[in-house]
Structure formats: C-alpha cells, structure tokens
C-alpha cells in the first residue's frame, strides 16, 4: 500500500472511485509477496503491481467490474496454464491469490 498511497490520494481528491487488489497468498514460485498491491480507478488508471506484469491486465478488468457493481469484493486466483499459452497466467509456474475490493472503508 505504501507505494500506491500518493496515486490513491490524487484520485481521491478528484473524487474517483477506486478498487484495490492485494496479494494475500502465493503457492510455489511467485513474483511478489503477500501485501503487494495495485489500485485501479474508475477511469482505468493503474498504480502499483501484484506480479511481474503477468496478471495486471486481468486485474484491471476485475477491478472495473467491482467498481461498476457487476461483481462483489472477492478472491481471485491466477495460476499457470501450460496448454493455453495466451491465457492469463503466470509464466513462473506459481499460483497467486488476490483479494480485490472497492476502497470504500
């Protein structure tokens, strides 16, 4: 959270709605430890990261769905998908569990 506070504050000043995704658990090889975080505002702007760039695109989609009310705060899991080379996944072979929620607390 520390690294994304400045961006979050700037968005809050502009009354942007914000969702925050945090790594809560990793299995096997994972690029970022629990606590790594990423924020997305309603315009799709991004701050921070939760992996080495592998799943951030998909996280933006999930975050926007939550901000638009199409989805509730929830855990999202990304793993390695060998047979779908272009599916969202981690090339490192690890599994990453994220919690995504609106910043309304």
């Amino acid at each position: 959270m520390r690294e994304i506070l400045d961006d979050i504050e700037r968005w809050r000043l502009n009354n942007r709605r914000i969702a925050v995704a945090r790594v809560v658990n990793i299995e096997g090889s994972g690029p970022r430890d629990p606590g790594a975080s990423m924020a997305v505002n309603e315009d799709g702007e991004v701050a921070g990261s939760v992996s080495g760039g592998c799943v951030e695109g998909a996280v933006v989609g999930e975050a926007l769905a939550i901000l638009h009310g199409d989805m509730q705060p929830r855990m999202v899991t990304f793993g390695y998908s060998d047979d779908e080379a272009f599916a969202v996944g981690l090339t490192c072979g690890g599994i990453i569990h994220l919690f995504i929620e609106p910043l309304n607390w």
Partner: peptide
C-alpha cells in the same frame, strides 16, 4: 472465516 492479516 479467512482473514488476511497485513502488517505495516
């Protein structure tokens, strides 16, 4: 209940 405990 699963609780994520994040330490700062």
């Amino acid at each position: 209940v699963s609780v994520f405990v994040e330490s700062f």
